[in-house]
Simulated assay, not measured.
Amino acid sequence: MALRTDDISINTIIGKGSAISGNMKVNGFIRVDGDIDGSLETDGNVIVGENARIRGNLTAKSVIIGGIIKGNIKANESVKILAEAAVIGDIISRKVQVDGSAIIHGHCISIKDEAEFGKTSGEYLQSKAIKEKVNL
């Protein structure tokens, strides 16, 4: 998996064969090669390795996905979904790149303009929260 990023120092690694149950909030760059059953939030970049599985929402600065995510993704800068990856959930980012045979099952909002992105993503997240409360 080719990676080019500004921040090259990884602060947190969840190794292959590791499993975490529960929500996580970390600082900085994180690489996930194991399984997370819960949401992940960081102010940095995220790499989801090809063997990784996340069942929960993902919030980050930017995301590169090689594995499977079953949950919504919000990345302020970019989302790149590699060829063997799958996302079952909604994607909100300023830039989205999807390789040829990747799978996306959900909505995708991609707006380059920062102000318009903030407004639209806020409205979308609010309407989604209202729908979830109604369906409880």
Rank of each mutant, 00 (worst) to 15 (best):
Y124Q: 10
L40A: 07
E123D: 13
I104N: 04
F117E: 00
L82P: 00
G38C: 08
N23I: 03
I20A: 09
E114M: 02
R53M: 10
V134D: 11
N135K: 14
T120R: 13
A60W: 02
I130K: 14
G44F: 05
K74Q: 07
N27S: 13
I103F: 06
N51T: 14
K16G: 01
I109G: 01
G22M: 03
K131E: 14
G89P: 00
F29T: 13
A85K: 01
E116M: 12
I73H: 05
G15I: 04
E41N: 11
A83M: 05
N11R: 15
K61V: 02
G100I: 10
K112R: 00
D90N: 09
G66S: 07
I13F: 15
S110C: 12
G67M: 05
S110G: 09
T42P: 09
C108K: 01
E116P: 00
N45F: 05
I73L: 12
I20L: 14
R53H: 14
R94A: 05
A19T: 14
S21Q: 15
K16F: 07
I68G: 07
E84F: 02
G122E: 06
I14D: 01
G56T: 09
L82M: 09
G34D: 04
I10C: 06
A102S: 07
A86F: 00
K61D: 09
I92D: 03
G28V: 09
K119L: 12
K74N: 14
R31M: 08
S9E: 11
G89I: 03
D99T: 05
T120P: 06
I68P: 02
T120N: 14
N27A: 07
I69V: 12
L125E: 07
A86D: 04
I130Y: 11
G71A: 03
N27V: 05
D6G: 14
C108G: 04
N23Q: 07
K128A: 15
S110Y: 03
A75S: 04
S93Y: 02
L3W: 10
D6I: 12
